[in-house]
Structures are given as C-alpha cells and as structure tokens.
Design a binder for these strands. Structure first.
Length: 297
DNA sequence: AAAATCAGCAACCGCCAACGG
DNA sequence: TCCGTTGGCGGTTGCTGATTT
C-alpha cells in the first residue's frame, strides 16, 4: 500500500489553472503571504490542493519570474551547473534568480539535451577536439557525492563559526523562510487593493481572446505593477521596481532571490560558472571539484 | 486542407526530509 | 522516540500550438 495522495478529495480540481483561480491565489497571497499552503485552498475558496497552489505560485505567479527564451549566458551557466550539480534543478535555479527550477528543467530536457546531443554527433562525425566530450550523466554520481561532501563540510563550518550560510547551496529563500513558524507579517505585504483592481481592469481589457497567456500578463502586471518590459518577441520581462512591490523591497521579499553578484563577490568557482568562454563541456570535467571546494573555504 | 508528427511547457505524481505534537 | 503532516524536489505526463507530410 502506497502512501495516499496528498489530495484525494473528490472536489479537488486538476488541470490548467484558469485566470480566475490565478487571481484568487494571487489576491490571497498578497493579503496573507506565501506559505502555509495547506490553508490556502480552504481559506481562499480554491478547489485546488495545497501542492497545486504552491506550484502555481512558485512556477508561474511569483513575482520576478522571467519568461521567454534563455540568454546565452543563462544557457552556459546551466550547462556548467548541471555538470557540477547534476539534475538538482532547485540548486541550479538558485543561481538563476529569475528562472524557476521547473523552467530550467524543461529547458534542459528540451533544448539543452538536444543541443548537447547534436554537438556530440557533430564531433563524432568530424572527429574534432570535441570527441573527448563525455555525456553529462557519466560520472554524475561522483560529482553529486562530492557536492554532498562539500555541503556537509560547509554545514560543519557554519555550525562551528556560527555564521550565516554563504553563497553556495543556499536554499531558496522562497520556501525555507516559511518553514519557520512565523509567517511574514501582513504589514510586510503592501496594500494590494490597488494592484488587484488594476489586475482586474487589465484582465477585462485583455480577455477578448480569453487567452490564459494574456491573463498571465495581467497577473504579472499585478505582481510587478509598472515594471514589465516587453521584449521584441513579445515576452514579458519583469523588472523590479523599487517603488512598488518588488522582490527586493517589501511585498514579496521572502520569495526574492537577489542576484548572486549583488550578494557575494565572485569566487573562483563562480567566475568559472559565469565564464562564457569555458563552455563546451571539457572545461567542466577538467575542473577538479576538490579545487573548487578548497576555494569555498 | 487535413492528418500526422514534433516541440514546448504547465501541471501532476510520488518520494523524501523536516518539523511539530 | 514515534508518527502524522507539510513542503520541496525531480521525473514524468499530457495538452496545445507549430510544423511537416
């Protein structure tokens, strides 16, 4: 007998979220803050399970999420991090503040795998220097083990020094901060009335097609009022606005993931991660993890 | 123009770990 | 210490739009 599913109630709705549900969820979270997911369906009136609410929020509605295609820099970073960490998407996502783990995972499973496979095939056909490329999965468990060792070392060091965690393997603030028993004070969350009315206004204006995407933009408008910039391909990029409810300032502070460079000076390993010139796979394997871990301490 | 196939991505599922009573 | 609950994570599925035949 397996464990019963978290949401086996009959009335729990599944499938794609409707704009109405998004509004309810965003409104509720604006008022009460994220966290305590179990209570959200009951208190907000949503016929969704808590898990679904949390996923919808973290993967789609959370402010500061960048949508659209990945930049070359992001792509390189993902390649490097995947080589280093394996398929630990949440850890990788912590280095890409505007991307969700689900986004990165999807991107990897569609674009990157294909790309790497193509590169490998080309190399095999041409017999180029890329031929010593090794599939990422190869030796992955060793890297993972090494990573775990590093994490343990770091935890020990932190425990001894009583310092706050440093840059690497820092858990996503969005979630861990709520594991504590004290939810963010409601005063932390700016008054949402204006934003919600704005959202509804935008929604009714944009609904003709009843497209969930246009609604999504409206929801993004809500959480990033006045901060979106539309790129040439039509995707919306959320830009923090310090005057409004930005991740850096008030409202959704707990969910923000400040840019790495803002938080910490670049170490050797980070320099490596961000170095676009070292893409191509070999460098990943050339870098000794031991060297990297020494650099951490 | 219609059917078949492919690609992208949102959402679900199941496992695991942390936490609290 | 045990056990139930909750949240987080990674793998996978399935829907939808785009492209090809």
């Amino acid at each position: 007998m397996g464990r019963p599913p978290c949401c086996d109630k009959f009335e729990v709705k599944k499938g794609p979220w409707t704009p109405e549900e998004d509004i309810i969820l965003v409104s509720y979270i604006q008022e009460h803050g994220p966290g305590n997911w179990k209570a959200i369906p009951t208190n907000s009136g949503l016929s969704r399970c808590s898990k679904s609410c949390r996923l919808r929020w973290t993967n789609y509605l959370r402010p500061g999420i960048k949508r659209g295609s990945f930049t070359d820099q992001e792509e390189n970073l993902i390649i490097h991090l995947q080589a280093l960490l394996g398929n630990r998407w949440a850890a990788i996502a912590s280095y890409l503040p505007e991307r969700t783990d689900n986004d990165i995972k999807n991107y990897w499973n569609t674009h990157m795998k294909k790309k790497l496979r193509r590169m490998e095939n080309e190399a095999l056909q041409e017999g180029t220097g890329f031929s010593n490329y090794q599939p990422i999965a190869k030796g992955q468990w060793e890297r993972r083990l090494q990573t775990d060792i590093n994490m343990a070392k770091q935890a020990l060091q932190e425990a001894l020094s009583m310092e706050k965690p440093r840059f690497l393997y820092e858990s996503k603030p969005s979630c861990s901060s709520h594991s504590s028993s004290t939810p963010p004070s409601s005063t932390t969350y700016a008054s949402s009335t204006e934003n919600i009315s704005r959202l509804l206004e935008n929604w009714t204006r944009k609904t003709p097609k009843n497209s969930s995407k246009s609604i999504q933009h409206s929801v993004n408008d809500l959480v990033n009022v006045g901060t979106d910039s539309t790129s040439s391909d039509g995707t919306i990029t959320s830009v923090p606005n310090n005057n409004m409810v930005s991740p850096e300032t008030g409202l959704f502070q707990v969910d923000s993931k400040p840019s790495l460079e803002e938080r910490f000076p670049l170490s050797l390993i980070e320099t490596w991660l961000f170095d676009e010139n070292c893409g191509g796979g070999n460098t990943v394997l050339d870098l000794s993890l031991d060297d990297a871990s020494h650099e951490l301490f």
